[in-house]
Design a protein around this nucleic acid. Structure first.
Lengths: 322, 322
DNA sequence: TTGTATGCGTTATCAG
DNA sequence: CTGATAACGCATACAA
């Protein structure tokens, strides 16, 4: 139904080659014919087919984003960032949640066939599977996961801020408990590492981590159990803000005051963090930029430019909860 | 680089037509040759190209989602829902944020050329632009926006729950103030309508709405201004939960107790709502299902099946904030 | 039951 | 400067 390149060519009295030339500004075209072609395109409301173009050239003009799942403010922020970049670069954005499915690799391959490159995040595919895709020539940028071979990656600081935050709590005479599962994501694993380092530097030993999922309910449940136990912890170092806000709820239910009776810290600095009562001490991570930069790096890669790994700065934001 | 249908055909000693037949299960193939073709595909790791397939047939096997912007838990939830359905139906999912850009219509057309159909939400394109796309044969499902011509739509209840919620506040002797901009989205407009109806039914007049954006900061700012003024409102009916949580923050800062000195209600029932202190009275809207059902309806439409408009139930969830 | 040939909408490589 | 024409990877009438 929509007009194709032949109709434009016919209307302008030229060949499709010429139309293609003015369209992509490739090769010489006399001003006069260029004008006629442009007019014909305008008149017909011609829009080149992304499919035909992709099939002929090798550019799909689309990028893919692979997530473990799409819930929560963190993912939403990253999607926002990469979507922004995609629009600026005139790339379509395809997204896929693997949801710990068995077919994950199959789905990612399917996605890969539709795009010029992939941004792959945290716990989605195994390192081996990712390396395999890369070997096959699929352009990939890793987001918030450790380097695999030569594959470029972008992440934000985890170890150092965690070390500082935990260290600061220790120096105040508190014995923080780590709420989060280092196995859950590479990010959490690094935060746990920084947490450990802070202890080691001070010749102290850390308590084992309390595995929770990264949602508010996980923090709530774990918080309730811990705060009811003996000895009652005086400080909780949560793997992300949602967990910390769950702890807030548990503390409120038990009548414990923050920060007087319980210090709490989170991670991410989601919008809620600043508005919580009391405002949550957390680590501000540039979530939007993470997505944006991963996208930018991927586009560079696709264009054949050299790219460098990127580690965006995160910083501790001290607020009323500690 | 990846093997194509010709290589499979050659390896199996058949024609591409036969390969295509076993691939799509169209037309008769002898068990023996089918077996050989399958083996060849297996051996080569053949994956049909989505592009070639789309260009030849008319199916893109992809659907598009058009949002005003992608921030916040509401959008994230809807995306989750439609992503889930897309995976089940083996459809790729493309997403686009219009961000009130001028080029919006252009971008949507571009997106449309890559997919079999579009889910278009709230304030993205003008009704006229949407109607135009529909006329051109593009399959569309409207999400959270009023009906346009014959275009199928899915939304959740707004007027009735708003009427009940506001009515209940009125019956307790409170004079609620509406926090939100009816112009901001069709949903908010309907909530405002229900709010008005509750007043009319009781022969009372409503105070004019206080326009705020739908983020927490908007609620915080507006809340601060209102709660400092005279006479100080005793009840705030917020257009969504984020706004309400912003009000929480303003109230905390001013030392006002909820619900004793200020009743607050939200909308959406985002995860935070139940865990806020005190738990937020709100209207539970099936956000995930909204996305899921819109996707399902779109797939039905694409397959040529008849579809019916859908209005999902929302219900008031009374909690501690009122 | 299987193969041939054509079309889908572009880009790109040649000749003119 | 311009025009044929061959890919690109697949589906599908039409023949055999």
């Amino acid at each position: 139904m929509p007009p194709n390149i032949y109709e434009v060519a016919r209307k302008a009295g030229v060949s499709i080659a010429t139309v293609s030339r003015v369209l992509n500004d490739t090769g010489p075209v006399s001003p006069a014919t260029r004008e006629r072609v442009l007019a014909a395109m305008q008149a017909l409301g011609y829009r080149p087919s992304a499919l035909g173009r992709a099939l002929a050239g090798k550019r799909r003009e689309a990028i893919g984003l692979v997530f473990p799942d799409l819930a929560g403010p963190y993912h939403a922020g990253v999607i926002s960032g990469i979507e922004d970049l995609a629009m600026r670069e005139h790339q379509a954005l395809l997204i896929l949640g693997t949801h710990a499915r068995e077919q994950a690799e199959e789905l990612v391959r399917e996605l890969a066939s539709r795009v010029d490159g992939l941004v792959i995040t945290g716990r989605t595919l195994s390192d081996q599977a990712v390396a395999e895709l890369w070997q096959e020539g699929i352009r990939i940028v890793l987001l918030a996961r450790p380097k695999i071979g030569e594959i470029p990656c972008v992440q934000s600081e985890n170890v150092e801020p965690a070390r500082r935050l935990a260290g600061s709590l220790l120096d105040r005479g508190l014995q923080p408990l780590f709420l989060g599962d280092p196995e859950a994501s590479p990010d959490v694993a690094e935060r746990w590492r920084g947490f450990l380092e802070a202890h080691r530097e001070r010749g102290r030993s850390a308590l084992p981590p309390i595995p929770t999922d990264l949602r508010q309910e996980g923090g709530y449940r774990a918080g309730l159990a811990l705060l009811r136990g003996e000895p009652r912890p005086r400080a909780l170092f949560c793997a992300n803000d949602e967990t910390a806000l769950g702890v807030y709820q548990a503390a409120a239910q038990l009548g414990l005051r923050i920060p007087e009776e319980l210090a709490v810290s989170g991670w991410d600095d989601i919008p809620q963090a600043a508005y919580a009562v009391p405002p949550l001490t957390t680590v501000c991570q540039p979530i939007f930029e993470l997505g944006f930069e991963a996208g930018r790096m991927l586009v560079e890669l696709i264009q054949g430019h050299p790219v460098q790994d990127l580690c965006l700065p995160s910083e501790v934001v001290w607020r009323g909860s500690t």
